[in-house]
Nucleic acid binder design. Sequence first.
DNA 1: TAGACGTGGCT
DNA 2: TAGCCAAGTCT
Length: 287
Amino acid sequence: MVSARQVNPWYRENRRDLPWRRPGFPAWGTLVSEFMLQQTQVSRVLPRLEEWLRRWPTPADLAATPPGEAVRAWDRLGYPRRALALHSAAVAIAEQHDGKVPADVDALLALPGIGQYTARAIAVFAYGLRHPVVDTNVRRVIARAVEGQGLAGPAATARDLAAMDALLPAENDEAAVFNAGMMELGAIVCTARNPKCDACPLADVCRWRALGYPAYAGPRAPRQQRYVGSDREARGRILAVLRGSEVPVSEEALVEAVTEPDRRSRILEGLLKDGLAALTDDGYALP
DNA sequence: TAGACGTGGCT
DNA sequence: TAGCCAAGTCT
């Protein structure tokens, strides 16, 4: 049986020293880090996070700057709409929550860019509340150790949350450690490829191991489109030009970034629609 | 609910 | 090295 009895001591002994795990780290810092960590590796987040929190130490600080500055400071973290959502969340927190990051999951879910994972991560890691937190790491650990499957397959949020809830210790602090521990286990031991079962605190109870590591035969998440040569890549090049300019950029100045006129206008259209760019009298600019 | 949405690390 | 994968969210 997978339980905090194995996971929590392992976590306390083996956890990485990360900024958001330091005592006294503010809830706002947890929120910013969770936005940045969505689909993005820890190593890439670390430098950006430090810079953001130095520049915008509170939600009100970020809310007081133009959203374009958030997009610029997001740099090359990827999924730049997260920068926009984070800025909007800061505005909502400043205006509707007296500048304080809410602890309530439903209040967090109402903020832009915050879904089931991020809302619970903030409530649990910033405020010590008792909720199941399920990310891709937790899903994989449960799939293997509990269900005996090699991989987790496509997410099924309600089912995944229920599965984690069933394992959660009763006491708040232990539940928070268990959540962090399951994530950490998936991140550094029970990895997607080459899991380090010799170093796993769940080895004795792991169903996948007991079954002899059967190959995963269930449904796979749909494969991502090829990035090289895609509109997404071209969109990134255009946004990079806008980020690099303090003044509006004419469409002619974007020809080098995207040569084909049809594709260029399609991408520009999309950036305007998403609010990542604004059209001024002098050309395109960050919002 | 399947597909769109960035960018880089790793094998 | 081409392809998988990454502390997801939104529509």
